[in-house]
């Protein structure tokens, strides 16, 4: 399986390492043309506003939406989750708008409030080490969205069809279980495409 990591800005190398650790091929995506070869895509952590500027400048917005619409899985972490959301609290417009949820940016506070916690994630782990950095969370999830994890009552991981999002950074630890989960989503989707 070939999994791309959008490499405009942010913690790209860490995701590449994790993708390789679960036995998939990792591709640094800097150009729109590269999307065609991929089975799945990761939108990494970083600064969502900075990433959006670069997405616009290189005309990535529609190709990324089309990638999602084609049924290929996308996994967004932190800033990546903000990019995926249909709505952003207190903002008029969103970015890719692919996942049926409303997110709030920097929802846990500033950097001094950033934290680590062990989380139960449905179908993944009972004790997943989660690192939250100026993290967002999901204020509201649509009917079709499966909530995978909550931290003190706030939704921090969810899945909507072939889209996966976490408010924390699985790529900052050596735990590959969540990436393993995403790889299975990618394999399932590739199987379906091959059948059609």
């Amino acid at each position: 399986m070939k999994i791309g990591v959008l490499a405009l800005q942010g913690a790209v190398a860490e995701h590449v390492r994790t993708v390789k650790a679960v036995g998939a091929e990792a591709v640094l995506v800097k150009r729109v043309e590269q999307l065609a070869d991929l089975d799945g895509l990761i939108l990494p952590g970083g600064e969502s506003t900075a990433m959006r500027r670069l997405i616009d400048r290189y005309n990535f917005l529609e190709p990324l939406r089309a990638f999602g619409a084609s049924g290929k899985p996308i996994f967004g972490t932190c800033a990546g989750m903000i990019l995926l959301a249909k709505q952003i609290h207190n903002q008029e417009s969103s970015h890719l708008g692919l996942m049926d949820m409303t997110v709030e940016r920097n929802a846990f506070g500033r950097q001094v409030d950033s934290f680590e916690a062990d989380l139960a994630i449905k179908g993944v782990a009972e004790d997943f080490p989660a690192v939250f950095i100026r993290a967002p969370y999901i204020l509201e999830a649509g009917d079709g969205v499966e909530i995978l994890s909550e931290d003190t009552g706030r939704i921090v991981a969810a899945r909507d069809r072939h889209y996966l999002a976490t408010a924390f950074h699985p790529e900052l630890t050596k735990d590959t279980r969540l990436m393993g989960y995403f790889l299975r989503m990618v394999e399932d989707a590739a199987g379906k495409v091959a059948h059609n």
Binding site: A79, Q111, D113, F115, E116, A117, V131, I133, H169
Partner: peptide
């Protein structure tokens, strides 16, 4: 329980700035 100010959280914040200005 939630831990703030750890190396992972502090260094991780800088990791998110990579490739940026």
């Amino acid at each position: 329980m939630a831990k703030t100010g750890t190396d992972l959280v502090k260094r991780g914040m800088a990791e998110m700035q990579k490739g940026g200005v």
